[in-house]
Design a protein around this nucleic acid. Structure first.
Length: 289
DNA sequence: CGCATTTCCTGGAGGC
DNA sequence: TGCCTCCAGGAAATGC
């Protein structure tokens, strides 16, 4: 499930091969993953040069010559890979884009089809195809901004998952950040004091940065553009560890459903009341995998 | 508007 | 081994 660290990894690995590449033949084999009218897509892309590959929230953005942008959202099971043109094509490969003058191509594959592709150009047909509104990048978030975000009565977990509030966190890194900060997922956002707010923001950033360093987390489907798995899974402290001992206090990790999503937490480290001592907070922040 | 719930989709896991 | 049901979840759509 590609979240910010996974998408960042993909963008960084695609950038060296795609930057300055010119797109040639485009093959759409399943057009309902294209937002808007898929028919003009090949003509719109062919001949454009890739100026830059970057990430915004959980989206891969390719800036193309002529002011166009090609945007990918990977949903749950989406992958973007660079392969030889003649390599065997996996099923559920929906889009292939050849690179001019090479035997390489970009492939978008997404068995579950929660992902999607947007082509944003100056062409009238595409102007209206807006992507959903996004909140700020968590890694660029400042504490003042974050405290303003927390001034709501919602539980903290669904708030962190809401892309219009903060853009890039998903289920894994929300749970991991909340555990690192010692915050229970059902805690009302506006009940966090200033201390807890800055601790949580620091933990969100350090968790994301560390996950990027290990190329993200592969539970099932996520792969880097070269097909490799992310290796952050072995550092997870709560996500997917129901019934296993907390790596900090040995208490059994629990799973509850919050806003329709699994939420893993340690009942010992993440209490709903706020009477934890400063000493334990320090220990918690120093804990490294 | 704010927030909760439902829906989309496929393959893997687990029960029997 | 095979058949069945359940489940994962990002985000848009729908409900209240």
């Amino acid at each position: 499930m590609p979240e910010l660290p996974e998408v960042e990894t993909i963008a960084r690995q695609l950038a060296p091969e795609l930057t300055n590449a010119v797109l040639s033949r485009v093959l759409v084999s399943r057009d309902d993953i294209i937002h808007g009218d898929p028919r003009p897509l090949p003509g719109l892309l062919r001949g454009r040069r890739v100026d830059r590959v970057h990430r915004r929230a959980k989206r891969i953005v390719m800036d193309l010559s002529g002011g166009a942008q090609l945007v990918f959202h990977l949903g749950m099971t989406g992958t973007l890979t660079m392969t030889r043109v003649r390599a065997a094509v996996d099923n559920h490969t929906h889009l292939r884009i050849r690179i001019r003058g090479t035997d390489r191509e970009l492939r978008f594959r997404d068995p579950r089809r929660f992902g999607g592709v947007w082509c944003l150009t100056d062409q009238p047909k595409y102007v209206g195809q807006k992507l959903g509104p996004l909140g700020p990048e968590p890694l660029e978030l400042r504490i003042k901004q974050f405290k303003a975000i927390l001034r709501r009565s919602r539980p903290i977990k669904p708030l962190l998952l809401d892309q219009t509030v903060v853009a890039g966190l998903g289920n894994i890194y929300s749970d991991e950040s909340l555990h690192a900060a010692g915050v229970h997922p059902l805690t009302r956002a506006d009940s966090l004091d200033g201390d807890a707010a800055s601790r949580l923001l620091r933990c969100i950033k350090s968790t994301l940065r560390r996950a990027i360093r290990f190329s993200g987390t592969t539970m099932m489907d996520y792969r880097t553009p070269s097909g490799a798995k992310g290796s952050f899974r072995r550092f997870l402290r709560v996500y997917g560890r129901e019934g296993e001992p907390c790596r900090r206090c040995r208490a059994s990790i629990e799973r509850i459903v919050v806003a329709g999503r699994s939420s893993f937490f340690c009942p010992q480290c993440q209490r709903r009341t706020r009477e934890r001592g400063k000493v334990r907070r320090c220990e918690r922040e120093k804990m490294r995998t």
